[in-house]
Design a protein around this nucleic acid. Structure first.
Length: 417
RNA sequence: GCGGUCUUGGUGAAGUGGUUAACACGUCGGAUUGUGGCUCCGAUAUGCGUGGGUUCGAUUCCCACAGAUCGCCCCA
């Protein structure tokens, strides 16, 4: 118990950190290229921010949040996603004051109380971007391209980009009603989940896997038939620009985002080998969110990507580079006088940022040599009684086995410069 | 939240209702004087996820719980 991290959490160990840093560096690179700046928001927020931002009726808010009352009697929630926080920070810090489009990205832990699985943790890490203040469909495309190129550049194959439009407050209600009528007629044939979705969120019936094969699905009304002119043109433009950018995508009318704030463009990038947790990134436009949180009407669009999932995908394809951190030197000593000299030398080397270490366990010289070899150090710096007396060091090149004895004072200049 | 599978040392694992829980890797030590990578020798689980139960006796059978994993769900 004491030695087990809570269910759904994981330690990221030193041997895994290369992959994380690699992905984080790639994130920073591509965000710089696209003009997105990093923001870091608090790990927890007022519960109400998520209730309002994500939507009361969503699964995330209904049953997946880590919510507690703090000692000051505030209802606090560990962030289940970062879009609401980013928008809150945008408003609180008046980032809109620049008058320009505000482009942000973040990397951080998110928390959802879910049943853990490979690629699904209770504390997990997302990277995401948000662009606030512009409704141009070119921006939708920019965001999709950022996500797509990011994953492509990592070398992942078998990526699938799916896009859809979910309408806006003018046309979605119309579609919603149409669906309710349509599925209402075949209510008895729906699975139990979908029966309750019928009232809450009929759009979600469309991507139900239980009912997927049933006859009435094919005939279900399509959103295209209900879109208002603005949404139709917007979607057409996004598709046109994606095509111009030479990106393969499929329009999936069943792609419905689970968070209430999405409007118009919705997209998802899947990596099919991941099985049931195949969504690497997902996002879309959320033109109503800023207003919902208390700002003046401001369009926005963004996406989030799961870093653990990306790493699983990279591992599957052997794409995680291992940065070999080699030691420059391993100091080997024999005798207590030598140990002091060795320690001095160790300190001097480190002052010059030369990666060095020595044995502190009092092992035999032979054992120290073994360790030196195993450490990957290029040089063994050997100090025994003779060297102490002469103020010298025997430098052995562990790759070539060549060795020479030189003055201590010359070690840094002769060997490591 | 629902259903299935799994859980043996630092790692990969074999195995049995009953005296020493195989093997391999790793780790540590040694093979005479101050020198590694090869080879050889030796050491390395009072313990078989946790807690109960059945039994003369359980790591092996039963139950519960926990964790991992797969599918559902959800989503990144």
């Amino acid at each position: 118990m004491l030695t087990n991290a809570p269910r759904g959490t994981k330690d990221i160990l030193p041997e895994q950190i290369d992959g994380w840093q690699y992905v984080e560096n790639e994130i920073r690179k591509i965000c710089a290229a696209y003009g997105y700046e990093e923001i870091r928001t608090p790990t927890f927020e007022h519960t109400e921010l998520f209730q309002r931002g994500i939507g009361e009726a969503t699964d995330v808010v209904e049953k997946e949040m880590y919510t507690f009352t703090d000692r000051g009697n505030r209802s606090i929630t560990l962030r289940p996603e970062n879009t609401a926080s980013a928008v809150r920070a945008y408003l609180q810090n008046k980032l809109y004051a620049s008058g320009n489009l505000v482009k942000l990205f973040y990397i951080g832990s998110m928390f959802r109380y879910d049943r853990p699985q490979a690629g699904r943790l209770r504390e997990f890490h997302q990277f995401g971007v948000e662009a606030l203040g512009e409704k141009n469909p070119a921006l939708d495309t920019e965001i999709i391209l950022l996500a797509w190129n990011f994953l492509k550049n990592l070398g992942l194959d078998e990526l699938k980009l799916k896009i859809n439009t979910v309408g806006c407050p003018a046309c979605r209600p119309v579609y919603r009603q149409k669906l309710q009528h349509y599925f209402g007629d075949v209510r008895d044939e729906l699975c139990n989940d979908c029966k309750s979705r019928l009232d809450k969120n009929p759009l979600r019936i469309l991507d139900c896997k239980v009912d997927a094969g049933k006859d009435f699905m094919d005939e279900a009304p399509r959103i295209e038939t209900c879109l208002c002119d603005e949404c139709r043109e917007h979607f057409a433009k996004v598709k046109e620009l994606l095509t111009a950018a030479n990106v393969d995508f499929t329009v999936d009318n069943r792609l419905v985002r689970g968070l209430d704030y999405y409007t118009k463009t919705a997209f998802e990038i899947q990596y099919t080998p991941l099985g049931s947790q195949s969504a690497l990134a997902g996002g879309g436009r959320y033109d109503g969110l800023v207003e919902e949180i208390g700002g003046s009407p401001t369009p926005g669009i963004g996406f989030a990507a799961g870093i653990e999932r990306i790493l699983i995908a990279l591992e599957k394809q052997n794409l995680v580079p291992s940065a070999q951190k080699k030691l420059d030197a391993f100091i080997v000593t024999a005798g207590s006088a030598a140990e002091v000299c060795g320690f001095q030398l160790l300190n001097n080397l480190r002052q010059k940022n030369i990666a060095a270490t020595m044995d502190f366990a009092g092992r035999s010289m032979k054992a120290q040599m073994k360790q030196a070899a195993k450490s990957g150090a290029k040089f063994a710096l050997i100090i025994g009684d003779d060297e102490v007396a002469d103020k010298t060091v025997t430098v052995k090149n562990l790759e070539t086995s060549a060795q020479e004895t030189i003055s201590v004072d010359e070690v840094i200049t002769k060997i490591f410069s």
